[in-house]
Design a protein around this nucleic acid. Structure first.
Lengths: 274, 274
DNA sequence: TTGACAGTTGACCGATTAGTCATTATTATA
DNA sequence: TATAATAATGACTAATCGGTCAACTGTCAA
């Protein structure tokens, strides 16, 4: 386990227990038995740590849920899997989930807000696709409202789940949410949202290839595998080229996606080029 | 306007803009043109200010919505009025609403968490009553799930409303929410929650008459009206008596409820004795 | 054994925090 | 007008914050 990971784990525990603002770097370092100086060897600032945590979890959650849904062949089961997986991950990462629930971009930097908005839009996009898969084009007009309502239900039950620490039956919860979603998708006719909710600054932070390249470069420094290093280098060159060839990108991606460090960027590239 | 009120107004603005933790007492006092010392003449601590703000708003919101719903004669209109009023107040008090949305009891004291839970349970109780009024006993089994889902939808749309600062058509939003709620109330059959969600510590903080008495006493110091002072004194005595007579309580309440300072306690007493 | 070096440390810095209190300004009373 | 009472001030304290950096430690090759 890298030092970064040790710090992240300690920070999540403390952030969840006391809030982000109220947790000091000092407390984090004490909690994982390193010195203050050592912290700043791994992270340039406290903000950078926070961003790293958000990125780490949001990307994992989005990928896990999406993979689970994609692997489900039966259309009608997809929605059920979506809810089960979502709540499973949320209860697995209780600490971080609590942070997410209550600290949706309080004080922290502008950069973080953009990051969160990007992930939220990505998650909403996946949910929209899922709803179309399950219910077909009949939900065309109500798609934006449906997304908001589904998010609302998930949020509401999740918050309940965390505030009263009781153990819950995720399968059963998922069943009832599938029923509610289906009822709404089939029967509701009034439309409030006629277009997607435009979050401020979100459009500018759409996955600029630049960011993916930077991410790949950084991930490269962690890898010792020669094939991976070469693939990553070629991938970066291909992306920078004016005539990026999808086949080559996807081929190189399949060389890299087994490594955790590259996983998120591979996921983004597959979304874009497949 | 009392000095307390001036401070509260300034604090709300700053809390909403920068978050509670990140707003200093200094900034609050500068924002309303008083000295730091003067602040501590009105509030014993920053925590006390925060609690006062929460109490001020939560009680106002609960009372406003409840009154509006009660005044609506037609049953089928009640739900519509509930949503319209809720979003109207939330957009009216945007600042505080934003605080509520994102800072559900982060760092702040244990006492505050209990306070919030009490208000949440009160609001949930009112919503439950409303749903029974509108849909009758057919929702008996699904009442707890319905409350959670309705709260989720409100939360979700409200957050959207605040993050993208666009102006919204509250009437139309209310209509679609009425439709969705009705569809769910009529058609859903699966039940997840078989009993109310028990929030930790919430049961102990049920409106102990003691707290009402304390509140009345404090409110008394602000009133100069003689009838009010006498009524309040008699009310306190009646509440402390072993054989509290409902008729007397309600009579005295009607002497007091026009005064803002007493309003909330009168509301609580009416709920209890009517 | 020496010396170069990466990794680690914790005392320290300037800024900021919540909260205090001797002092001053204002008002009411006589 | 003089005196008492109350309200308001802002310099001050002790603590804590994020962040820095000269000094220290342990590990190797020579």
């Amino acid at each position: 386990m890298t030092k970064k990971q040790i710090i992240i784990d300690a920070a999540i525990e403390l952030f969840a227990a006391k809030g982000i603002e109220a947790t000091s770097v000092q407390q984090i370092t004490e909690h994982c038995g390193i010195s203050k100086g050592a912290f700043y060897l791994s992270f340039k600032s406290k903000d950078e740590l926070i961003i790293a945590i958000i990125e780490y979890f949001m990307s994992n959650i989005i990928m896990d849920v999406d993979h689970a849904v994609s692997e489900t062949a039966n259309r009608t089961d997809k929605l059920y899997v979506y809810f089960v997986k979502t709540f499973t991950i949320l209860s697995q990462y209780t600490g971080f989930a609590e942070i997410l629930m209550r600290e949706r971009s309080t004080t922290i930097s502008e950069k973080l807000i953009e990051k969160v908005h990007f992930f939220v839009e990505m998650a909403n996009g996946n949910l929209t696709k899922l709803l179309f898969d399950v219910f077909g084009n009949q939900i065309e007009e109500k798609q934006y409202d449906l997304v908001v309502v589904v998010n609302g239900m998930v949020h509401s039950y999740a918050q309940m789940l965390f505030e009263s620490k009781q153990h819950i039956d995720i399968q059963k919860l998922a069943e009832t949410l599938v029923e509610k979603t289906t009822i709404l998708a089939m029967n509701s006719e009034l439309v409030f949202l006629k277009k997607p909710i435009s979050l401020p600054h979100a459009s500018e932070s759409i996955p600029p290839v630049v960011e993916i390249i930077q991410g790949l470069q950084q991930a490269c420094t962690y890898s010792s595998n020669k094939l991976e290093k070469e693939s990553a280098q070629l991938l970066i060159e291909e992306l920078q080229s004016d005539t990026t060839r999808a086949a080559i990108v996807l081929g190189l991606v399949s060389n890299l996606e087994k490594n955790d460090k590259f996983e998120w960027y591979c996921y983004l590239l597959r979304k874009q080029f497949q």
